[in-house]
Structures are given as C-alpha cells and as structure tokens.
Write a protein that binds this DNA or RNA. Structure first.
Length: 561
DNA sequence: TATTGGTTGCGGAA
DNA sequence: TTCCGCAACCAATA
C-alpha cells in the first residue's frame, strides 16, 4: 500500500534535482495487450522518453486471472509472449512481475527512477480494478510521478457517451444508437510504434512461458491450484492468443471476406458449425485488447465497401456487434456509478429485477459438466470446457436452460462459470447477456423460451455438432440424436450407448418445467411492479398462478450415473 | 392512453 | 417458406 522508506528515500534522491530530468516511463499493460492503436504505449514511445519499461503484473485478484481456467491462463500467457516478442523487435522487451500492483508499482518506480506512468483506463467501474487504480494513482502522484491514462477500450470513450446522454444513459440499444450517431466519426486507429526507448534492466522479470507460471487461483483454503495439474498441450482452444494472431484473424475473417462482412446478420449465424465457424471469433482478442475495436471498425468498413451486396445494418451487422460492446460497457459503467459495484450481481443492481432463483448446487454442477441429458445443451457445455468458446446462440441456449427455461438457478452462478471458462470473458458483456437471457433485465419476453431439442434441429438435423462434443452418442440414429432417451433399447445397443448409464436421462422435463417457470417469472414481475408502484406493500398478492401445463410434475431424474 | 418495436422462440397450419 | 396463436413481457413514443 505504501512506499517503503528506503525506496522513498531513493526516489527522492533521484528526483530532487532542479534540472528537468529526462522522462523515464512505465507503460503498465493490464488489458490492451497490443502495440497498435494503444495510445499509452504510443505516447511513451515518443522521442522525449529516454527509458521505457513496458510492464505486465500478474495479479491473482484481477478479473483476467482470478477465476480463470488453464485454458484462459494459457491464452493470456500466449498474449504476453507475443507482446514480448513484438517489443523485442523494436528494441525493448516486456517486464513481468507477480503480485499486487499497488505494492509492486512503487517499488519498481523507485528502482528504475520512473517519472511517468501510463496505462489504459478501465471504464466499466469494475470494483477491484477501480480500487486498484485509485490507489496506484494516489501513491504515484504522492511521489511526484506523472500518471497519464488513456481510454482506448471502446470505439469512443465511455465518458463521451455519458456526456452526450443528458440526464440518464440510454438503456436500450435503439437509444444508444441515437447517442452513438451524435458522437461523430470513430477515431482512426493509430499504428504501432516501430522503435521503443530502451530499458536498462535486462535481468529477470521475463514473460511467463506456461500457464502454471501465472498466480493460479486457489480453491478456498486449499493450497492446491485448481487447474495447475492440467497440461496445456491437452487443451484445444478455439484460437491462440496474441496481437499477431488477432491481426491475422482479422485479415482472414474480415478483410478477405467482403461479402460475408457486408451481409453479416448475427441472428442468422449458426452455432452448430464444427469446422469453419459462422462468426469471426475475434471476441477473445477483444476481451484482452489484443485487437483495437477501432482497428476492427475500419477493417469492417473497408471490407464491406468492396462488396456490391446489399449491406446489413446495426444492430445485427458486424459494426452493430461493436456497438453492442460499447453499449454494454456504458451500461456496466452506469450500474457501478453510484453503487458499490453492483454490475455482475442481482442485489443492488439497478438494471436487474429480483427473481427468487433456487439454489441447488447439484443442478448447477450437472449443467456445468454437461450432464443434463439434453445433448444439444451438454454438447455446448463440453465445447466451452474444451475450447473456451461457444457460439453466441449456444450461449443463449445454455443460459436460458440454467435460469428461466429449465433449472431455475441464478444467472450469477452461470455468469461466474462463463467468466472462468470463456476465452472472451468480458465483465461488461457477460453481465449484460446473463441479465438478458435470464429475463432479469433489458429483455422481458419470458414466454419466448429456447427448446433444448428444437432450437438447433432445423440447422443441424443429423446432429454433427452433438456427435463431435458427445462422442458417446456418435452412433445414434439422427432420429434420436436430440432426444436419446426416446431410442428403443435395441437401438441404444446398436449404437453402443445405454441411456441412463453411459449418458444421462434428461434431468428435468423441459415441456413441464419451462411452463412452470413462465408462471414463476410472471409472479416475480408482478411483485416487482407492485413494489415499484406502491412502495413495498406486496401483501395483497397471491402466489404464483397454477401452471396450465398438461404435463404431470416429474420427479427430478438425479439418479443417473 | 394506446401504439409500436424489441439483434436471435416454438409449433402447427397453409 | 411464411404466417399465426401462444398469452401477453417491457420501454419508448406519440
């Protein structure tokens, strides 16, 4: 928290001269793991800087590491190695420390005689990042170090949207698009510096080489790493990390496909692809800032202009996807503005309706491990575990299933699981989408419910996707691939699978539970309406209306192997 | 107060 | 393939 006395004395000796000293800078990478369109590193690579220390701090408490799986940790390591390699080409290198930035930064500033600190702002108000940055800035300024922060995570700075919004920030995509239109042109992305000021210190602080070099998450009081034993070579991430890979992916998926880009409509892309994905899969790079949103914006524009096809428009177009991203950052920022960081939770979150979710750890675990007995749901959860990614509509299906659709478990638990597993885990986007899917905020049509059977049957009638991620079912006839419990025993035998033994029976009856849950949602909404209209007097409300389902309540099938 | 629109539902009928 | 009923949500707009 505080400068140590020896380091403070060293620092005072180094900086007390009245002559103007040359600038010695640290650029502190947190997200924004790139050199192109990175205003902080571009600023500190200018001529007036005599020494530059590009620095990353492996902080076990930050959103990017705290709960991450081996897959995500490995992705981060790849990003850091790539950054180090690119810096070395320009005569520099990445310095990597491990621990609490609030303690580490002052020590390094003293050791290196630093006069200027730059970093990319976190504009979402994520509680840990907010507190960390406030403390770092306070300590640095107390010691006379100039701190310069840059807003480069979104197309326009979040504060620009706020200033154009008047009394309240928009809470629908339509109104956000109105604000976006008033802000003006997206700034052009800046090129990466070619040369960097040198750093003196060549000893140690090397970039991590493998995921287990990161400060691993610990399991409560247990000292064992949760994922440390897993070998990264066994993992099959959907993409590999790093700015270089990000730019290659951008070129391959956007620059080289004008018609795909021009006509892109997100809701029409398919989640069941097993080879070439139907979307760009740039999101993992966006989440750690390997790719600048402004770089992506103009790559889309340039590519699209080379096609003569009729062009799709926001919100469904590729530009629209970047607008959603900025909109979500703005909303997360607003949710955290006057609260103690309530975005990402139900309690105290002004965008989240109170819903009385159940708390059944066993059901949650079954969902996490892909043992629900619904192959389409389970296959998605397996892909998440193996590749760190699922198509957007696959996420819809499993999120709906966990919350309002079938299992009636809190979206917070689902969001936590996504946060730890998704390569593209993003504080703002993850929260927004879980509110949406659980009908807790922004989207309220709870009677529109995804069927774990029908939703993808039309796109993938033979269940190629399911066969890939649930190989135990790979020989089932297509007729039963979405509903294997309906397969006669002889068919199961033929396919080499016994439902109830090798693969579970459905854990709930979707037809029944989804109807039940709709009436629970209706009741929760009614209570909310009452409580916001007449204070908190809800005494006159009756219980949830009886379900109109003609199905008999089924006992939960929890006894599968 | 009524109307309209909301990135991405399902299932059956025509 | 498109359209409707389903039971009917919310927020913004006129």
């Amino acid at each position: 928290m505080y400068w140590t006395l020896p380091s403070l004395a060293l620092f005072l000796m180094a900086s007390s001269t009245t002559l103007k000293k040359p600038t010695v800078a640290i650029h502190w990478f947190r997200k924004g793991l790139r050199l192109h369109d990175n205003p902080g590193i571009i600023h500190s690579s200018r001529e007036a800087v005599s020494k530059l220390y590009p620095l990353y701090i492996m902080d076990g408490e930050c959103y990017q590491i705290k709960h991450c799986t081996a897959l995500r940790a490995n992705f981060l390591v790849e990003c850091l190695q790539d950054l180090d390699g690119s810096l070395r080409k320009g005569g520099s290198r990445l310095h990597v420390a491990k621990g609490d930035p609030v303690e580490i930064l002052p020590k390094l500033c003293a050791k290196w005689g630093v006069t200027e600190l730059t970093f990319e702002e976190d504009e979402t108000g994520e509680p840990y990042a907010k507190q960390r940055d406030e403390q770092v800035i306070e300590e640095a300024e107390r010691c006379g170090i100039t701190v310069k922060t840059f807003a480069s995570e979104t197309l326009h700075p979040v504060k620009t949207y706020v200033s154009k919004s008047g009394s309240a920030v928009p809470n629908t995509m339509g109104s956000f698009q109105g604000i976006f239109g008033k802000v003006g042109k997206v700034p052009l992305p800046q090129d990466a510096p070619i040369h960097f000021p040198p750093a003196d210190d060549q000893d140690g602080m090397d970039a991590p080489k493998k995921a287990t070099d990161l400060p691993w998450p610990r399991n409560g009081s247990c000292e064992e790493p949760v994922w440390g034993a897993k070998e990264c070579k066994d993992l099959t991430p959907i993409v590999r990390g790093g700015e270089s890979k990000a730019l290659k992916q951008l070129h391959k998926k956007v620059t080289q496909r004008p018609t795909f880009v021009a006509t892109y409509e997100k809701p029409k892309t398919l989640p069941v692809a097993t080879e070439e994905m139907s979307t760009t899969v740039l999101s993992p790079y966006m989440s750690l800032g390997c790719l600048s949103p402004r770089k992506m914006w103009y790559a889309i524009e340039d590519s699209s202009e080379r096609s003569s096809a009729p062009k799709s428009k926001p919100p469904v177009s590729l530009h629209g996807q970047l607008l959603w991203r900025d909109f979500n950052h703005l909303i997360a920022h607003a949710a955290n503005k006057n609260e103690a960081g309530s975005w990402g939770q139900m309690e105290g979150n002004k965008y989240c309706r109170p819903i009385p979710w159940s708390n059944d750890p066993e059901l949650l675990q079954v969902w996490k491990e892909g043992r629900t007995g619904y192959p389409w749901i389970d296959a998605c959860m397996k892909q998440l575990e193996q590749e760190g990614w699922i198509h957007h509509l696959g996420r819809h299906a499993v999120a709906c299933f966990l919350t309002r659709g079938d299992l009636w478990q809190s979206w917070e638990k689902g969001a936590e699981h996504f946060e730890s597993h998704l390569l593209d885990a993003d504080y703002a986007l993850n929260g927004y989408n879980w509110l949406w899917l659980s009908c807790s905020g922004f989207f309220y049509q709870f009677f529109r419910c995804y069927s774990p059977i029908a939703f993808q049957k039309k796109n993938d009638p033979n269940g190629h996707y399911i066969r890939k991620y649930l190989p135990i079912l790979k020989d089932l006839p297509s007729k039963y691939i979405y509903e294997p419990w309906k397969a006669p025993i002889a068919v199961q035998k033929q396919a080499g699978v016994r439902i109830g033994q090798d693969y579970p029976k459905p854990i709930v009856d979707h037809a029944f539970e989804s109807k039940e849950n709709m009436s629970k949602m209706k009741y929760a909404y009614d209570l909310f309406k009452e409580s916001t209209k007449n204070g908190n007097d809800v005494s006159k409300k009756r219980g949830p209306s009886k379900s109109k389902s003609k199905y008999k309540k089924q006992k939960k099938l929890t006894d599968f192997q």
